[in-house]
Design a protein around this nucleic acid. Structure first.
Lengths: 250, 250
DNA sequence: TCCTTCGTTATTGTATACATAACGCATACA
DNA sequence: TGTATGCGTTATGTATACAATAACGAAGGA
């Protein structure tokens, strides 16, 4: 069959996985909806085998749920699920910060973190922050969290944090974007930046408990703000992950 | 093709997954060794498609690692990886205990936990503990931890704890078995039981911080004892997961 | 003697055909 | 009219054929 257009730059499995994730997060596939393999084959352009592999991976990732009688459906999340996921990630990042502090980190390793910090400081100097600056902030914040996670030098922990961030609303970018809908967005970003500053200081001074505590507080702040943000959903259209939230909160 | 003997009671994918996990944990497949799909097909009796699905699931589970050029290899773990995994699980269970305490748990929900506690008390009354009693202990302890996790009523957290327990040495049963090699085994079990008692008390009295703290201490104790146990490996032959530990600690 | 290149082989990635189980609809009987 | 049973359709689970790529080895030239 030569009529199928094949992109050989990435594997069909990866292509299918990305395409399906996109469909889920964009809301083309609604929560609770069963995913038809045949339909997925048509929309992704891959054949059934890679599509099935992608479905298995997305299930492990937490975006899909296996149906006992066979097949997969898009998972639905309650507001509580979301806030728990954020707090969960905060707890893991707290452990990462503690590991970093207790195990010691060289000045050279801390350098990229400090650069991130300075770059964010620079952005926050504008009042009010522009849209472009905000999207830079989202990227820098994600980078800061990723670097911090790496500092733990614990592959099992890093792996688990990555898993916890797989759900888009639990990723650093996800909840930052949600919070941006709030009128107090700028102040929130400034407080978050203060947390970043404290965790670096704590790691530098080898204060494990303090490093851990501030990361957990960081997450708790995010949870509170997300709750507020979800109250006035009108501003949240930009958040693709919203498609996954159950309309009826339990 | 009717010559292949097929067991229709479970799906071929599940069968292959169980068979491969067995091979990994029993040490038939050594850490770092590449898993040949063809060989896996022969040993599991399933065909390539379900074998590949099983391999993907085992990778997500953390027992396998994808090789960039294709295929999978058995993952190898350092001693540090193992102790980190235990502490990680302790941290998550701490969060679960805190959620349970803060969100409130009815007396009826706490009942199974207390039954578990009483059953373990009964077992520990024998000095020294018999082999049969010990294996009962392993089962009861696993049940206690599972019930406690459930009490959090947080599906994302429960999911993550399950993931963290996938590695056999990080599961409740795994490290209890490791500790059993120590001469102080009985005392260790008694201290662990005290932790169980405290966490129930803390949840009952809605003391979230205390419930969390004791579960983390529970894990830290396990880490210390596992380190000791790994010193005299001669007694550890019973622990299948040992096959996954790198011989050269980094 | 070592490095490079080409060819062969083995193993993975992909596609599709076939088998089987589930779901829905229609019809018949109570 | 409602329920139950059976058949047909559809979708998933499984097996295998085919394609492509990476690894290994041999041979030739520098």
């Amino acid at each position: 069959m030569a009529e199928r257009e094949v992109d050989r730059s990435v594997s069909q499995t990866v292509k299918a996985q990305l395409a399906l994730r996109d469909q889920i997060l964009s809301g083309s596939l609604r929560p609770g909806e069963r995913i038809s393999e045949l339909q997925a084959v048509e929309t992704t352009g891959a054949s059934r085998t890679p599509v099935r592999m992608a479905l298995v991976r997305l299930e492990e990732e937490g975006l899909l749920e296996a149906i006992p009688s066979g097949g997969f459906m898009v998972k639905a999340f309650s507001e509580r699920d979301i806030s728990d996921s954020i707090e969960l990630r905060g707890t893991l990042e707290g452990l990462a910060a503690r590991f970093a502090a207790e195990r010691g980190v060289s000045a050279r390793e801390l350098e990229p973190l400090k650069e991130c910090l300075a770059a964010i400081d620079e952005l926050l100097r504008q009042v009010p922050i522009s849209i472009e600056a905000f999207s830079s902030y989202v990227a820098l914040n994600a980078r800061f969290h990723a670097l911090l996670t790496e500092l733990s030098r614990s592959p099992p922990l890093i792996r688990q944090i990555d898993r916890a961030s797989a759900l888009p609303f639990a990723s650093p970018s996800g909840f930052v974007m949600a919070q941006s809908a709030l009128p107090e967005a700028q102040q929130i970003l400034i407080i978050g930046q203060e947390h970043h500053r404290v965790v670096i200081d704590a790691i530098e001074n080898r204060e494990g408990a303090r490093a851990e505590a501030v990361m957990r507080e960081h997450a708790r702040l995010a949870v509170r703000n997300l709750r507020l943000a979800l109250r006035n959903r009108t501003h949240l259209d930009l958040l693709p992950a919203l498609a996954l939230i159950k309309t009826t909160t339990d």
